[in-house]
């Protein structure tokens, strides 16, 4: 507010300060955003006739979801689920085992510079691509099936867990590390006494979270041939068997809910 016009006769006007102070930038941003939105919206070709037609199919899918058909493709569903669940478990375990050393190596406060650089490189490599793209490459190399899926999910787990673990280690209370160092403890003892107790609950939480993510992802990478329930689902949708697709989706949602619910308990116990 301007304060230089203070006089006894002026009545003060107060307005909420706009978030962006400069009016030029403010209006520039507004207009720019509006222009982009219009341009983007009009560049999307929508075939309304096809959409209208699709509403009927959409309704059939909703019906399939409400009255799912577990029976006619039960065998396929069981096999797909079995592949999904087993590759979730194995890839999470392997991923955690590899993530811990890499995560420790990628923590700036305890790792020497060359180790830090290498570990951060591994993390960046693993995080830069979507699981599905990695799956495409692994399927091309290792052939169709859950083994390629297992490799994909392990690889993706490394990027996810190591990064979060490293950040967690970098955020620990340094005074506890200092205290252990001042007793004459070596590097391994510092990791075991000062760092492990501080990061363990979060590591357990993150591992469970990743288990959950790996299961959801296992339902996707099947689309490109890496095994699991995704392949079954893909087939069902291709055949327009919406009731079977609905059944598969319900099973997925149920498992995800059970996983989320039980991981809450484990996390509480780990605190």
């Amino acid at each position: 507010m301007t304060t230089d016009q203070i006089s006894t006769t002026t009545t003060y006007v107060w307005r909420k300060q706009p978030f962006i102070k400069s009016p030029v930038t403010r209006w520039g941003l507004y207009i720019g955003a509006l222009a982009y939105l219009l341009l983007a919206a009009f560049s999307v070709p929508v075939n309304w006739a096809r959409v209208w037609e699709g509403l009927d199919r959409g309704w059939r899918f909703v019906e399939g979801f409400l009255v799912p058909d577990f029976a006619s493709r039960w065998g396929d569903i069981v096999i797909g689920m079995q592949e999904s669940l087993t590759m979730t478990v194995t890839s999470t375990v392997v991923g955690i085992l590899i993530s811990i050393p890499i995560g420790i190596g990628a923590a700036r406060n305890i790792a020497p510079a060359p180790v830090y650089a290498i570990c951060r490189g591994v993390i960046a490599l693993s995080r830069s691509f979507q699981e599905i793209i990695i799956a495409i490459l692994f399927v091309a190399m290792f052939g169709f099936g859950p083994f390629a899926g297992f490799l994909t999910l392990s690889f993706a787990t490394i990027g996810f867990l190591s990064k979060l673990l490293a950040e967690d280690i970098e955020d620990i209370d340094e005074s506890q590390t200092e205290a252990i160092r001042s007793t004459g403890g070596g590097w391994w003892q510092i990791v075991n006494y000062a760092i492990q107790p501080q990061v363990m609950p979060r590591l357990i939480g993150l591992s469970l979270y990743r288990l959950d993510i790996n299961f959801r992802e296992s339902a996707v990478i099947g689309i490109v041939g890496a095994g699991g329930i995704g392949a079954t689902l893909n087939t069902a949708i291709d055949r327009y068997e919406y009731d079977t697709a609905g059944a598969i989706l319900i099973v997925i949602i149920l498992i995800v809910m059970v996983a989320e619910y039980s991981s809450g308990y484990v996390r509480k116990w780990a605190q």
Binding site: V46, G58, R216, E217, V220, I223, L233, D238, I253
Partner: peptide, 25 residues
């Protein structure tokens, strides 16, 4: 929230392509 979160964008895509046809929409 749960239903939306449990299903990956690719699966939503798979369904929607089957329902309203392929494309950006």
């Amino acid at each position: 929230i749960v239903a939306s979160r449990s299903i990956n964008a690719l699966i939503w895509g798979l369904l929607l392509v089957a329902i309203i046809g392929p494309g950006v929409f």
